[in-house]
């Protein structure tokens, strides 16, 4: 499969701040790549480079083989972009907003209008078509903005934090809309701070921090990187913690950690539910009452925290300081 998006060693500085510090990324055509990272990690800057809004200082980025600098006009014809803030015109109606975008893609009046009607229907906005956007909720604005990105049926779509700031209901509606797009086979680059979002929508995830891609893979691959399953138990009595620890030694696969304050024990395991049942049986036989127990696989949150922490340990204080300032500027 050919790559729809390729980013090679892209560097972008704003004054003394290095926003992108050699980003490498490739996204195969027809797949969804989730760019995951904290605020100021360089996600938005990466999207802005790929959508021709910013020129990289060095390195190369292409979309369908078109260079973001040299071939910018041709590239713009093939992409759709929906930003962090819904860039819709408040004083126009939903229909007029989409018609405007269609006209600017030079679809002609008739086709621009037909496409606007079609998209309003697809995004459940047909009832709001003739209403001025000023009165729209955040979720409606985002959906309209996403619809605007789809007007010209782009081959590659960029969504920059499409659900940031939305309430849970609107977020789910937005996810559904995005899932449908994905099912129709478009290539999508999605940035997000929400691990759940990346987990749910993306085929592959690139974790970005301090202007670099620090890990890449499927959600499962990334989870495996930070280790396997664990059992988390809360005991009734704090004075039984050391007894419990000894008892659970038989099922542990690695070092058991104990938190006395919370009366909690975390046991890394390798055999999932089998280990869970055996552990509970052992504790029962030893007379240790348990008030809460859970078998957990690592979440992307764990992955994310583990990866970004590791990155911090590796980084010298000077660079960290820069990255910190980068965060202020980029967010």
């Amino acid at each position: 499969m050919s790559d729809a998006i390729q980013v090679e060693n892209v560097v972008k500085r704003f004054g003394a701040v290095t926003a992108l510090d050699g980003v490498n990324l490739s996204v195969p055509a027809g797949t969804v790549m989730g760019l995951l990272g904290p605020n100021g990690a360089g996600k938005t800057t990466t999207v802005r480079v790929l959508t021709t809004l910013l020129e990289p200082d060095s390195g190369r980025a292409t979309v369908h083989g078109l260079d973001v600098v040299r071939d910018a006009p041709a590239l713009r014809r093939r992409i759709g972009v929906s930003g962090q803030y819904a860039a819709v015109d408040e004083y126009l109606t939903a229909f007029e907003n989409l018609e405007l975008v269609g006209r600017l893609y030079r679809l002609g009046r008739r086709r621009a209008r037909a496409r606007a009607t079609e998209l309003l229907e697809q995004f459940g906005l047909e009832d709001a078509a003739t209403r001025v956007v000023k009165g729209f909720s955040g979720g409606m604005r985002r959906r309209l903005d996403l619809a605007g990105a789809l007007v010209a049926r782009p081959e590659v779509l960029f969504l920059d934090e499409p659900t940031t700031g939305l309430d849970p209901r609107s977020r789910i509606a937005m996810w559904e809309a995005i899932s449908e797009l994905v099912a129709s086979g478009s290539t999508l680059l999605l940035t997000t701070q929400y691990l759940e979002e990346a987990d749910r929508l993306a085929d592959r995830i690139a974790v970005v921090d301090h202007g670099r891609v620090i890990a890449e893979g499927t959600a499962d691959e990334l989870k495996d990187q930070v280790g396997g399953e664990r059992i988390e138990l809360t005991l009734e009595r704090a004075d039984q913690l050391s007894l419990a620890r000894t008892t659970l030694g038989g099922v542990a696969h690695g070092e058991i950690s104990v938190s006395a304050e919370q009366r909690r024990i975390v046991v890394p395991v390798s055999t999932g539910s089998h280990a869970l049942m055996r552990g509970l049986r052992d504790l029962d036989e030893a007379g240790v009452p348990v008030i809460d127990v859970v078998l957990r696989r690592p979440t992307l949150d764990d992955v994310f925290l583990a990866l970004t922490e590791r990155q911090q340990d590796d980084t010298d204080p000077g660079v960290l300081e820069h990255a910190g300032r980068g965060a202020e500027i980029a967010t």
Binding site: T52, V81, A86, V88, Y105, G148
Partner: peptide
């Protein structure tokens, strides 16, 4: 409001 950003990602004339 980010509207200029949107316009700049569209294949329109630079002075439009």
């Amino acid at each position: 409001k980010g509207i200029i950003d949107r316009f700049r990602t569209l294949p329109i004339s630079r002075s439009a």
